[in-house]
Structures are given as C-alpha cells and as structure tokens.
Amino acid sequence: MTLREIVKILNATVCIGENHLDDEVTKAFASDLMSDVLTLKETPILITGLCNIQTIRTCDMACLQVVVFVRNKKPTEDMIELAEENDMILIGCEYSMFKTCGLLYEAGLNPLY
C-alpha cells in the first residue's frame, strides 16, 4: 500500500516527507524498544509511541525510512531536523498502537515475523 493510504486509514498527519506519499510499503514493525528495532534485517515502516531523538537515530542506523508516531506524539524540532537530513517520512496519528496496528493489518500491511 502507499503511504498516502496509510495516512488516510489512520486519519493521520504528515510531519515531514509529503513528497514520498506515493511510495509503496509492504511491511510494518511496531515497538517502543529501539534495541529490538536494531535487530531487524529488513526495513519496514516503524509504528512507535517512543518519540525522542533516539527513535530517529535508530531508524537512521537500521535504514528505516518511515515512522508512524501513535497517541498524538509530536516530534521535536531536533528530531525533525535529523529526520530531514536522512530523507525520512514522519507521520503522526491519534490512535493507540493497538488500533493503529489493527487497522493497517486489516488493510493488508504485513508483519515482519
């Protein structure tokens, strides 16, 4: 599915990366534990409630390009700046992690494992 579809399903807002909304994604991983994210061999979108600079750094190291922040978490200026440097897409929604995962799974987004 495209990121545009994800934004629509989650009634989300795009913080940065509007120009990537037609990019296709197939898999997602949900975690607040960055140590877990650092073990991934693939590059899914990340669904997380952890909103700090290390979320962005971890994605940079793990080569993940898309982050969906749940529960209305707003990235800070330094996070946005770092994400922009790495050509990332940051999306935010008000739904809980559970609901976010449920809606995207139902719509056909696949899990990693």
């Binding site: 607040d32 534990l33 960055m34 140590s35 877990d36 994210v37 650092l38 073990t39 952890l50 700090n52 290390q54 979320t55 971890t58």
Partner: peptide
C-alpha cells in the same frame, strides 16, 4: 529504558 534501550540486547546484538 526511557530512551528505548536497556533491554539487555546491546552486547548480543554487537556480536551478531
């Protein structure tokens, strides 16, 4: 742990 670390996975992940 608040930063998303501290789960005891660091050294094992380095090894991998």
């Amino acid at each position: 742990r608040d930063m998303g670390f501290g789960a005891g996975m660091g050294l094992p992940n380095m090894q991998k």
